[in-house]
Design a binder for these strands. Structure first.
Lengths: 352, 352
DNA sequence: TTGAAAGCGCTAACAA
DNA sequence: TTGTTAGCGCTTTCAA
């Protein structure tokens, strides 16, 4: 508090009765205005459209701001302008880098424009997702990114009423709720199955993370099975794992694969594919001689031995693209291309 | 919009001139009030203190809310109450699970109380951190968690003026800015060095992530060196790596370690320690016979062969504890214990 | 238990 | 380029 600029917010010289001031005691735009001898509006303009303010005023305002230590109250600004400059993203978990990276991509896309990112994790719960959607809409976020291609009826209703841009991530519904950034997970599964077929492996298996709301993994399994059938292979073994992130020991899985005489397996989780590979190796199984393994890409894919054949989905880019879409829409632009296919890479390495 | 409750926000029956309405067209508390035939204050009370509203009114209000599809505008509420129910956390990156997990822990600690989490990533930049602090304070977050024990003067000034609870994470400054949750990274380094000394290894090395603002890693190195000296060992080799997350090939490091005839190495990054172990193995180096390796814990520590001796820092719990501290302070409670040492585990396994 | 009035701190609309 | 005025939608204060 300098020079006695504002100490008490109570300006009621001779107003109403003795109502206690509700002021927060913090420096307001009004205080800056008084210090710079301009109106509050001019200070506001200086902050938002500096080019519309004269040089003399600008100089005094800038000085006043730093002198009184003014930090604009964005809450008040949001209420008045009906734009929060906050964007929300809902992911299942942040412990898995594949879901944390889009959050970072989103933030990077929006940072320059002064947006902040609210994050919510669902732990794969549909109910939590609905609650988050409501909470975020209540906070009047300017846009929202939601992991997955399915939205509950309740979420749809709330989002529709909010009339804000929405990006669905990781999947490409034929008719997105609003916009979608992702890829075909069915294609991913099919791509791996085709690779196995071409290599001549017949007895296949697929290990997926099966969670009711994790449709990405389910789609990959579906695509895998369909493609295997197309190639006239026997129906692959389908194995399910609850929480791939927590698997530290895949020896049971390895034993089961061996018992079933599986020749090639596709693991739809990055973490688990590496774990499985390492386990198979220490169980003395030749990879790919006895068992071929394909998984999802991680930093370890090229470090393990044999190196892992893996599908790479550009997680960070997903968030970046989602952010760019939101930015355009929040700027009032119409977006024609409502589905962005970010594709995937299939890196064939030694393990298959 | 049901039953004609509010369609246009312009209520100016015969007010002022012809000023265009600024209303957002969304359902407001007033619309619910009218539908339930109570005042707006009663609806507000029903939402915040349901026990203070009569049963008849409560019933009508509940019905009205769902009938008109009311989602309270938390921005307006925040402005009026001067509480945003938003907490911010600043981390270097979300791509590294060790930094993503505290975010999740924080969210889990706060969810039940209706708080949301704003996330900012700095990519280890001090300037970005300052900008984020300003932005978050501008949004009037009710509390803030900041990775690291050092705060710039600018950040301190802004935070002091904001007068909100602040938790520093991962380190335990002797005198925290406000509160701190973490552990002694010097102790971590010392613990590993002591272990090496006890095992009889003399020629040591430590590989750290050296980034000017990443003082955690630096402290671990410091502790390691000090303890080695205390045990009368020759000065360990110190090697630096720019971005441990991006290291996919540690063969250069392995070669250097061999050239320098290092007997035991401590790698202060989880990712890199596994990569180094795998690289050493494929280079035909016996672990721990020729080279002992200790690192930081990850899901792979027990999967690799030999299993990795590793320090486990409870990242998720760090965020959880930070959230609990904030919650107490935001509830107006005084917190006596301003430094929470979450400790660490040292899991000795086969690699040393 | 309920309601009326008065802001919270800012920006949009309008006027000069 | 600058200022004045009137809200944004809610909660707090005070009164009944």
């Amino acid at each position: 508090m300098v020079d006695g600029f504002r100490v008490d917010t109570d300006m009621s010289e001779q107003r109403a009765p003795a109502r206690r001031s509700r002021g927060t005691g913090r420096v307001r735009i009004e205080d800056v205005a008084r210090a710079a001898e301009v109106s509050a509006q001019t200070v506001s303009r200086f902050l938002r459209h500096p080019d519309q303010v004269g040089p003399a005023a600008s100089e005094r305002i800038a000085a006043a701001i730093s002198r009184v230590g003014y930090v604009p109250n964005l809450i008040a600004g949001s209420l008045a302008s009906n734009r929060s400059r906050v964007v929300a993203i809902i992911v299942p978990t942040l412990a898995n880098p594949v879901h944390a990276q889009p959050v970072e991509g989103l933030g990077d896309a929006l940072r320059a424009d002064g947006y902040q990112v609210l994050v919510g994790t669902t732990d794969f719960s549909q109910e939590v997702e609905e609650a988050l959607v409501r909470a975020f809409v209540g906070r009047r976020v300017d846009g929202i990114v939601i992991t997955g291609g399915r939205l509950s009826a309740a979420s749809r209703t709330v989002l529709k009423a909010a009339a804000i841009p929405v990006v669905q991530l990781w999947e490409l519904p034929r008719i997105p709720f609003d916009m979608a950034v992702g890829n075909s997970n069915i294609d991913i599964g099919a791509c791996v199955a085709r690779h196995f077929a071409e290599r001549g492996y017949r007895r296949l298996a697929v290990i997926g993370h099966v969670q009711k709301s994790d449709t990405r993994s389910a789609d990959r399994v579906t695509g895998f099975l369909a493609e295997a059938q197309r190639h006239g292979l026997p129906a692959p073994l389908v194995m399910e794992v609850d929480r791939p992130m927590l698997i530290r020991d895949a020896s049971d899985l390895v034993a089961a694969l061996r018992r079933e005489e599986v020749r090639a397996v596709f693991v739809t989780s990055a973490q688990l594919s590496v774990v499985l590979l390492l386990n198979a190796r220490s169980a003395g199984i030749a990879v790919p001689g006895e068992l071929a393994i394909a998984g999802l890409e991680s930093d370890l894919s090229t470090v393990v031995s044999p190196t892992l054949t893996a599908v790479r989905v550009p997680a960070y880019e997903l968030g970046l693209q989602a952010g760019r879409l939101l930015l355009r829409r929040m700027a009032g632009e119409k977006v024609a291309q409502k589905r962005i296919d970010t594709g995937f890479e299939f890196n064939v390495r030694e393990s298959t």
